[in-house]
Design a protein around this nucleic acid. Structure first.
Length: 480
RNA sequence: CGGGGUGUAGCGCAGUUUGGUAGCGCAUCUGGUUUGGGACCAGAGGGUCGCGGGUUCAAAUCCUGCCACCCCGACCA
């Protein structure tokens, strides 16, 4: 196998230049292309199919938990954006403005939504009358625009696709329950669909969403030891509902402001998917999210019977719910196809030639381990299903192992400074909770507090920066 | 936004110093032979040289403004 590595030489090795490796992978595998406008990417069919699988999974979960989809407009009047002070301060620097309709200057400029809390709250204020209507459980699938300075496909684009849920509740407890329920769905989605282990927890005051009471996050660790914020769920309390004057009559006929949540994941997840699982040969896609789970490569396909049998096999696999592609194009050699589908990360490849058909077998190759084994055609549908299942579990555990290898514990500030300068990863450390210590860490090491994880450990009694009493363990890392 | 680099056929590049018919490899198309880890032979097609101004008889090449991409840093709910 090793002598074939030259065939994928168009992909820079991860160890040599991780950023270049990432760029090579997304370009060579036809996930995206650059558009003429900076920071705006075209998502090509292979990339979009991954997003569709994420959408389908989440949409089902949201609906199972009582949420309904809606759609709010792309444009938001400036006056609405300005209503919640922290929110506008947080987002104003990266908002795109519409100032003209045709040749006519607009009386009030309109912002292209960077997120939809403001327009949604404006409408909720109009609709909500009674406690009987609560909770409001809504979601929308859309794209948002944030004018970014440094952009990278999937990881940080000026426009990205996402879902944003926006809910209203009678009590803060219910809002908190909703916030955590959604975070749990995100965490499970990462594990069950993307085979990515997440650290979940609470953001610091400095890192939370502009306008939130509390922000919860799922954080993943990439192959290069940098963290990726992969999804957030915000408890907005009454910050927006007061600013937008959303009121209802409660059970005692008293006027109340409801409690509010919002939450979202985006196409950024695809960037994480790539940076957690893929290797120097290209993409490695976990089977549940892979657009194509199995590719059949016929050998000597012009020989009578080969393609017929291959099509039959395709049908058999599809019958048990597997996403199969049969590459019967005559102009590429089998060797070319092997390399191509490996680069594109198709989980399983089945090679089927005249000899195999005669013996009632096929060769099955795994993308993650590159193992190749002969299997009986007769039992392929069950065996392939099992293999895909195993692959998902194995990939999750490999990712977990990778993360654990790159997770360190530091008990002193010096240990953090020294260690993080030579090896990136998650650093568990105690923190007193003050902003000064947080800022110092960021300034001097480049690392930020990714979250205060739900799973706490009392590593020591004192903050690693100031030495004061500390009861919070945090995960620190340099982040995307 | 600061520093560095790049932009010539789908991809990778040469040509720019010293202005003078736009090239190479891969890919693509046609025909044939092939097929178990990127096959071979023969023929063919494909370029407003990132975009706009300027200098010149003449600009991929010189001057100038802009745009995009990559890398590093800053910023990033």
């Amino acid at each position: 196998m090793s002598e074939n590595k030259e065939f994928v030489k168009e992909i820079t090795k991860m160890e040599d230049d991780f950023a270049q490796w990432y760029t090579d992978v997304i370009r060579k595998t036809d996930l995206v292309d650059y558009s003429p406008v900076k920071g705006f990417m075209v998502i090509k069919p292979y990339g979009y199919a991954i997003w569709e699988n994420i959408q389908q999974y989440l949409d089902k979960k949201f609906k199972e938990t009582g949420h309904k989809n809606m759609y709010f407009p792309l444009l938001i009047p400036e006056s609405l954006l300005n209503k919640e002070k922290e929110h506008v301060e947080g987002f104003a620097p990266e908002v795109a403005w519409v100032t003209h309709g045709g040749d006519n200057e607009l009386g009030e400029r309109l912002c292209v939504r960077p997120t939809s809390e403001t327009i949604i709250c404006h409408m909720y204020a109009k609709w909500l009358k009674s406690y009987r209507e609560l909770p409001y459980l809504n979601n929308q699938w859309c794209s948002v625009v944030r004018w970014e300075k440094a952009t990278r496909p999937f990881l940080r684009t000026s426009e990205f696709l996402w879902q944003e849920g926006h809910t209203l509740h009678e009590t803060q407890e219910e809002a908190q329950e909703e916030t955590l329920k959604i975070l749990k769905i995100y965490e499970e989605m990462a594990k069950e669909l993307l085979a990515i282990p997440m650290v979940s927890g609470l953001k610091s005051e400095k890192e939370k969403f502009a306008g939130a009471e509390a922000t919860y996050t799922i954080e993943a660790l990439m192959h290069d030891g940098k963290a990726l914020q992969s999804g957030t769920s915000h408890n907005l309390a009454q910050h927006f509902t007061k600013a937008f004057d959303i009121t209802y009559l409660d059970r005692a006929s008293k006027l109340q402001h409801p409690y509010h949540t919002s939450w979202g994941v985006s196409t950024r997840l695809i960037g994480g998917l790539i940076m957690v699982h893929s290797d120097n040969r290209g993409l490695v896609l976990p089977p549940r999210v892979a657009p194509t789970q199995v590719v059949i490569v016929p050998i000597m396909q012009k020989k009578p019977g080969v393609l017929d049998r291959a099509y039959e096999l395709k049908k058999d696999l599809e019958a048990v719910g597997i996403r199969v592609e049969l590459d019967d194009s005559p102009n590429y050699s089998p060797g070319w196809k092997f390399n191509e589908y490996e680069m594109k990360g198709v989980p399983l490849r089945i090679e089927l030639g005249p000899r195999d058909i005669e013996n009632g077998v096929a060769m099955v190759a795994r993308r993650d381990t590159l193992d190749k084994n002969q299997m009986e055609l007769e039992h392929l549908p069950e065996m392939v299903s099992e293999l895909l299942e195993d692959m998902h579990q194995d990939m999750y555990h490999a990712a977990l192992e990778m993360r654990e290898e790159k997770t360190y514990t530091v008990k002193t500030y010096n240990a953090l400074v020294e260690s993080i300068s030579e090896k990136q990863g998650f650093y568990k450390a105690m923190w007193c909770g003050c902003e000064a210590c947080e800022a110092k860490i960021k300034e001097e090491t480049g690392a930020t507090i990714r979250c205060m994880p739900f799973e706490q450990e009392q590593l020591s009694e004192t903050c690693i920066v100031c030495g004061e009493k500390a009861d919070k363990m945090v995960y620190l890392a340099k982040a995307y």
